[in-house]
Design a protein around this nucleic acid. Structure first.
Lengths: 197, 197
DNA sequence: GTCTTTAGTATTGAATCGATATTAAAATTT
DNA sequence: AAATTTTAATATCGATTCAATACTAAAGAC
C-alpha cells in the first residue's frame, strides 16, 4: 500500500535519477561527471551570498572536502574562477568562467526538462513549485541545513521602490536581477508557501 | 532570469540531494551507500513484472553492469534474494529478504520525507504527483526509457470487478494490492495526467 | 594574547560507475 | 532444425567520487 507522499518521493527520486543520467550524458563529452554539471548549474544561479564552496557543499549534500575536489577539477578545466573574498579572507568566491558559461549555453543541461515541461501550464508548474518549496523548507528544518530558495520569495527581501530591493538579513541593497537568484539564507514567505488549494 | 520550470527542476534536484544525504546517513550505520538504499526502496515497491536487475538499472539510470555490482553486495549482506524466472531462464528475479524488509522497517528511509510532508494537504500532494508524473512521462518519451508508474493509473490496467483487475499489456490477472505497486511498463491514463487546474 | 571557531585544502582508502568482454538462454532467420 | 542474432545478466578493470582525517590560515571570543 503506497501512500501519496511516498509516491511523490518516488517521483522526485526517479526524476532526479533521470536528470542525473542526462547530466552524465551531457558532461561525458567533456569528461565531466554529473556532480560537476550540477555544480556549474548551481553557480549559474547562486547569488553573491551563496557562491562559495561551503554553500555548494550544503546544496549538494556532500562534505566540503569532497566538493573541494570537484572544484579543483572544474578550475583545472577552466570552467570556473576562484577569487578571495575582500572582507573575510578565508572565504573563496566562485563564479563561472566564460568557458563555463559557454559550456552551459551549449550543453543546456535543463533542455530536456524544458522540453518535458513545455505542455504544462504555468499555473500547474507554479503550484508544484509552491508545494515542493514547502517540503524543502520543512526538510531543512528537520535536517538543519539551509533551504536555498529564490531570493524574491524570502521574508528578508523587501521591495523599496520599482527597482530597489533590500535584504534585511544581510543588510544590503539588491538589484532586480539579483532577487531572482538562489540564496542559501532564504526563508520562504508564508504567502509563497500556502498557495490556494 | 529564472523561468518557472527551471525553478521546479532546481527544487527536484535539491530535494533529491537532501534525500540522498538522508539515505547516506541511514545506510551508513550498516555500511550501505545511498544507491543501495534506493535499490531496496525500489524492490519494496516494484511489481512482479519489474523486479529484475534490468528494470532496476533503468529506474536508477545506471548501466546493468553497475547495478549488478550493487546487487551482489546486497545479496552478500543477505538483504535481498535472487531467484531464476521459471519461464525465461535468463531473467533473475529479485525480492527483499526478511532482513531487507526489517532494515527498511527500522531505518525507514522515507521517514524524514513523511515528517516534512505531514502538514501538506492530501489535495496538494495529489496535485503535485499528477504534475510530476506528467513530466516523468514526457521525459521518458524523449529519452526512451520506461516511466515506472503505479499500476492502477495505467491505461493497461482494467478493473473487471470489485477485486479483480486485469493487465492488458502482460495479459495477466492482478490482485488489488498488486495494482498499487510500481510497474516498468506503466503508461499513464490521460485522466490521471490532466488533473483540473 | 591565547583559545576557539570557521572556510578551505591535501591525503588516503574504500566504493561507485562505465566500458568491455563473456556466458547462457531465448528469439529469429535461413 | 541449425545457425544467427538478440537479450539478461555477470566478471574484470581502470577512472572517478566520496568520506574521514589531518592540516593551514583567517576571524572571532574571552
Amino acid at each position: 500500500m503506497l501512500k501519496n507522499p511516498v509516491v511523490l518521493l518516488d517521483l522526485v527520486n526517479r526524476l532526479a535519477n533521470l536528470m542525473r543520467s542526462e547530466y552524465r550524458r551531457i558532461g561525458g563529452e567533456d569528461g565531466l561527471q554529473p556532480v560537476h554539471v550540477l555544480a556549474l548549474m548551481f553557480l549559474e544561479q547562486a547569488n553573491r551570498f551563496s557562491n562559495t564552496p561551503q554553500a555548494l557543499a550544503e546544496y549538494l549534500g556532500l562534505t566540503k572536502g569532497t566538493v573541494s575536489q570537484s572544484l579543483l577539477l572544474l578550475d583545472r578545466r577552466g570552467l570556473i574562477e576562484r577569487y578571495q573574498d575582500e572582507i573575510d579572507r578565508r572565504v573563496v568566491r566562485l563564479r563561472l568562467s566564460p568557458q563555463g558559461e559557454a559550456f552551459l549555453g551549449e550543453a543546456n543541461p535543463a533542455g530536456l526538462w524544458q522540453m518535458a515541461t513545455r505542455e504544462i501550464s504555468a499555473n500547474r508548474v507554479r503550484y508544484s513549485v509552491s508545494v515542493l518549496r514547502t517540503i524543502l523548507y520543512e526538510l531543512q528544518n528537520f535536517s538543519g541545513g539551509p533551504s536555498f530558495g529564490v531570493c524574491n520569495t524570502c521574508v528578508y527581501c523587501q521591495r523599496k521602490s520599482q527597482r530597489i530591493h533590500h535584504c534585511t538579513w544581510f543588510g544590503e541593497r539588491l538589484s532586480g536581477p539579483e532577487t531572482r537568484k538562489i540564496c542559501r539564507e532564504q526563508v520562504p514567505k508564508t504567502g509563497s508557501l500556502s498557495a490556494s488549494d
